[in-house]
């Protein structure tokens, strides 16, 4: 499946189906992340069940602590 992730076209491997899978794929599932899916911000409790679709526009920002 191909999505727009942070403004870039990204082709995801087949096993990435949900928002949670996407976070795991990028190894940020243990961080504080804010995800916007097609201009909506889903609650964290929806990540496991929320399916991604071809052409979705995703913005994904994770928090870091350095500086």
């Amino acid at each position: 499946m191909t999505i727009q992730l942070n403004g870039k076209t990204v082709t995801l491997p087949q096993e990435v189906a949900t928002v949670q899978d996407l976070l795991s794929h990028y190894q940020i599932e243990n961080r504080i992340v804010i995800v916007e899916l097609n201009k909506e911000i889903p609650g964290k409790e929806q990540y496991e069940t929320l399916l991604l679709n071809e052409g979705d526009r995703v913005e994904m920002i994770h928090f870091v602590g350095g500086g």
Binding site: I32, I34, F63, V64, G65
Partner: peptide, 11 residues
């Protein structure tokens, strides 16, 4: 934005 302290972070 981050309703709890992140358990750990990249530093």
């Amino acid at each position: 934005l981050m309703d709890h302290l992140p358990a750990q972070n990249l530093t």
